[in-house]
Amino acid sequence: MNLRNIFLASAATLVAAPALADVNIYTTRQPELIQPVIDEFTAETGIDVNLAFVQQGIVERLKAEGARSPADLVMTVDIANLQQIVDADVIQPVDSDVLHNSIPENLRSPDDLWFALTTRARIVYASKERVADGEVTTYEDLADPKWEGRICTRSGVHDYNLALLSAIIAHHGEEYAREWAAGVKANLARKPEGNDRAQVRAIWAGECDISLGNTYYMGQMLADPEQVEWANSVRIVFPEFEDAGTHINVSGVALTKAAPNKEEAIQLMEFLVSEEAQHIYAEANNEYPVLEGAPLSDLVASWGEFDRDTMDLTTLAGHRAEALRIMEEVNFDG
Rank of each mutant, 00 (worst) to 15 (best):
Q35G: 07
W114N: 02
I210H: 06
R130P: 00
T153R: 14
R29E: 13
K146C: 04
F271C: 00
H171V: 02
V290E: 02
A321K: 14
H279C: 01
P239G: 05
I168T: 13
D22G: 13
G66F: 06
G293R: 08
S69Y: 04
N187L: 07
I236C: 12
D72L: 01
P70Y: 04
G334V: 03
K63C: 04
I151Q: 04
M218P: 00
I266T: 04
I266W: 04
G194H: 09
E292A: 15
I79D: 09
E207P: 00
E60M: 07
A12L: 07
M1Q: 10
N331W: 09
S297R: 11
G156L: 01
V228N: 09
N187S: 07
Y281N: 13
A16K: 09
I203S: 05
A181W: 10
V290L: 02
V86R: 07
A265N: 01
K257H: 07
P192Q: 06
Q227A: 15
R201F: 07
G46V: 02
N106M: 05
P36S: 10
W147L: 03
R108D: 02
Y125V: 00
W230S: 07
W204P: 00
K128R: 14
P70W: 05
V234A: 03
N232A: 10
H279Q: 11
V250Y: 10
I85P: 00
V74N: 03
K185G: 05
L73Y: 04
P239A: 13
Y26E: 02
D144S: 14
A182N: 13
R197W: 12
G219P: 00
R120S: 14
S127D: 03
I151T: 03
T76M: 09
T314E: 12
M218Q: 14
L82S: 10
L82G: 06
K191V: 13
D89E: 12
F271N: 01
N195C: 09
E129T: 12
A294Q: 09
S166Q: 05
R130T: 15
K185A: 12
T314H: 07
A167K: 11
N101W: 03
I210Y: 06
S155W: 11
G213R: 09
L14Q: 13
G252K: 04
Q55C: 04
D307L: 12
P289A: 08
M221R: 05
V94P: 02
V77D: 10
V37G: 03
Y139G: 05
A80G: 13
R108K: 14
Y139H: 08
H171Y: 06
S127W: 08
H279G: 11
C208P: 00
E174R: 15
D22Y: 03
Q92S: 15
A116S: 15
L188Y: 12
L222V: 03
L117P: 01
V23H: 03
T256Q: 08
D89M: 01
L3S: 14
K257T: 10
V300L: 03
L324W: 07
E65Y: 07
A170Q: 07
L299Q: 12
L51N: 06
R190I: 06
L14H: 10
T13V: 02
A317K: 09
R154D: 14
H319D: 11
E292R: 15
F7H: 09
D78M: 12
E270S: 08
T45M: 02
Y217W: 14
P70A: 04
M269N: 01
E135Q: 15
E305V: 04
T310R: 12
N187C: 08
G156T: 00
H247Q: 15
T42W: 01
